[in-house]
Amino acid sequence: MNRFGLISRYPLVVAALIAALQSAAILYVVESRASVLRHGQEVLLQTAPIDPRDLLRGDYVVLSYDIAEIPTSLVFGSWPLGEKRQAIHVRIAPGEGGLWKVMQASFDPLPPAEGTVVLKGTVSYVPDRSTGADLRVAYGIERYYVPEGEGREIESARNEGRVSVAARVSAAGQASIRALMLDGKPLYEEPLY
């Protein structure tokens, strides 16, 4: 039993410690997201879905947002070049039909302003500014996990412009999906936990 060192004397204590750490890690992830949903500012976004599968989290619908394409004309401030991932700040505000649109974006932090929300996203590739190509921004809300097999139903029900997403955004700019809507109605009940 000597081979197991510390474990030989207090195996249950060590096991409980490990289990407590693991539980805490899971609950931390859960609560950090639940708090965004509880306190965040609600925004409504236009999307177009397709559906693949994740090995660990199962079927999901890929959501590509209108606000993910940002024209260079809306980007203010410095312009980092290169293939490296870059953090970007995007200010959005409600437009027609209650859908939120991009007002401006910047690689530097944006100050808060009344009636708008600042989202934090990442750009995986920053093209040369002079090319005028749109920036592709990921916000960490590009997947909607659904019960097995139901992704296809959403896909078949999909008709350009019928699916939208209600998300909540924390003060730090982190977005979390609150509900997936078809024709403006939520598809799934989304309890906080």
Partner: peptide
């Protein structure tokens, strides 16, 4: 137990539709 922990992390990611944090997880 180790598998269950991975399952728990995946479930949390699934519950809140977290995209693009596979590396952290």
């Amino acid at each position: 137990g180790t598998a269950a922990f991975g399952g728990g992390l995946s479930l949390a990611g699934q519950m809140y539709h977290i995209a693009g944090d596979m590396t952290q997880m």
